[in-house]
């Protein structure tokens, strides 16, 4: 199957600042693809290149089989976009903005529009100048979700939404996936990506640092194990793949590389296990490993956040 988004070696510079520095991104049809990275990593710049709002200085990019810069208008009929920072026209009501953006994109389904207004609890009769950030975000979400697009490009779509609305949003994204649509979801809310995404691309400083399924990435990282035993466990510290071991009486805590788990469990089995808690690595830990050196440079220990 041809990928929906196929970008390789993207470069974009603004003056002397290099916003994208050889970024790769591949999104397959029908998947929800998480696009993760800290602020300033180049997520929004990549999305603007994909939308043909910026022209890449280097690399190649294909979107829905076309050139996002040259074929912008034709491609935009097939996609819907929610910007990270939604700005609307102060004197135009939310309902008018939804209709305008929907019509410009290719049409709004009135029943779907009404349903989404209801679900997101948005009053369409208020002028945009009186909307809060969350409500402006909802206007863009309703306009995008009410369209019949193949590809949804969502740039940090839940910033400003309360947890209730975030849950509604997650249901809507799952519904899109069930219908076979493709979603590119940029985020720095890791729980959201963990919940929704089939595959992830992690970027930093304009480069892709890792890409794949969450499960596939987990083998690259460590499982956290807490164990209580009858007898003290000897030799744990000597096992390769065991990190940050702390022992407190009968309790031991450690982080274990995935391929060393088997050895650790064998060793523990001989010591009378009374309780064992093992937690798979969270995306947060994955993330912290990738950005650990940046945090360390700022004087923050990488594992302080747990």
């Amino acid at each position: 199957m041809t990928p929906v988004i196929e970008a390789s070696g993207l470069v974009k510079t603004f003056g002397t600042a290099r916003a994208l520095d050889g970024l790769d991104l591949d999104v397959a049809p029908g998947e929800v693809h998480g696009f993760l990275g800290p602020n300033g990593a180049g997520k929004s710049t990549t999305i603007r290149v994909l939308l043909g709002l910026l022209r890449a200085d280097g690399g190649s990019v294909r979107l829905l089989g076309g050139d996002p810069w040259r074929d912008a208008v034709a491609l935009h009929r097939r996609l819907a976009y929610v910007p990270g920072d939604v700005t609307l026209w102060p004197g135009v009501t939310g309902g008018e903005a939804i209709d305008l953006l929907g019509r410009l994109q290719g049409g709004v389904d009135p029943a779907r529009r009404a349903e989404l207004l209801e679900r997101f609890d948005l009053d369409p009769r208020k002028r945009a100048r009186t909307y809060s950030k969350g409500n402006r975000q909802k206007v863009a979400l309703v306009a995008a979700l009410a369209s019949d697009a193949e590809l949804f490009v969502l740039d940090e779509p839940t910033s400003g939404l309360d947890p209730l609305m975030e849950a509604v949003f997650q249901e809507e994204v799952r519904a899109l996936r069930a219908q076979g649509r493709t979603v590119l979801l940029s985020s720095h809310v890791l729980a959201e990506a963990e919940n929704l995404c089939d595959r992830l691309t992690i970027v930093r400083r304009g480069r892709t640092v890792q890409s794949g399924t969450l499960a596939g990435m987990r083998h690259l990282t460590r499982t956290s194990v807490t164990v209580e035993t009858d007898r003290p466990v000897h030799g744990l510290a000597q096992l390769p793949g065991v990190h940050d071991l702390r022992t407190d009486g009968g309790r031991s805590h450690m982080d274990v590389d995935t391929d060393a788990l088997d050895d650790v469990v064998r060793l523990l089995a001989g010591c009378g296990v009374r309780s064992l808690v093992s937690a798979p690595p969270t995306l947060e830990e994955l993330f912290l490993r990738h950005y650990g050196d940046e945090l360390a440079a700022d004087g923050i220990p990488a594992l302080a956040v747990r």
């Binding site: 309902g95 019509r103 410009l104 009053d123």
Partner: peptide
């Protein structure tokens, strides 16, 4: 503040329609 229209008038359907709306005042 009086509530405004819940849906856009027919004229607000093109870039020109939007421009007219933004400039009319």
């Amino acid at each position: 503040a009086r509530p405004g229209p819940a849906s856009a008038p027919w004229s607000l359907r093109s870039p020109l329609g939007l421009a007219v709306r933004l400039h009319r005042g």
